[in-house]
């Protein structure tokens, strides 16, 4: 379990990157609808740690982030790639405790 930041540090529909103790990077998103998500920050197509810098939105109502590298979309709940369902990024449980955003081990 890692405390990442205060919830108020997360502006709506914009991601931030956080470093976990094991060296893994997570992208944490707080959507305009008030939901909280955490995924691996690594874009599986380029290998670059950039998903936190993608544009957040929805496709057919499902919240997604678009990789800033080559624009594939990843569903924020499942980590599934919309363009290729066989590809997923790791999803981390995330919750708010006492105003702090907490990322759990997957």
């Amino acid at each position: 379990m890692t405390v990442v930041c205060r919830l108020s540090d997360l502006p709506p529909d914009r991601g931030v990157a956080a470093l976990l103790p094991d060296g893994a990077q997570v992208a944490v998103f707080h959507t305009g609808a008030g939901e909280l998500f955490a995924l691996s920050n690594i874009d599986p197509y380029s290998g670059a740690a950039v998903l936190s810098r993608g544009i957040v939105g929805d496709l057919r109502g499902v919240p997604v982030v678009a990789s800033p590298m080559h624009k594939q979309h990843f569903e924020l709940h499942s980590g599934e790639c919309v363009e290729d369902r066989a590809v997923t990024v790791r999803v981390y449980p995330v919750r708010v405790a006492a105003g702090q955003v907490v990322v759990e081990d997957p």
């Binding site: 709506p12 670059a48 544009i55």
Partner: peptide, 21 residues
Amino acid sequence: REQVALQDTNDQFLANIQRNG
């Protein structure tokens, strides 16, 4: 304000993203 969240990463960071991020 909220315009930040609308921008592609290049416009968000006012620079051009390259293959390693």
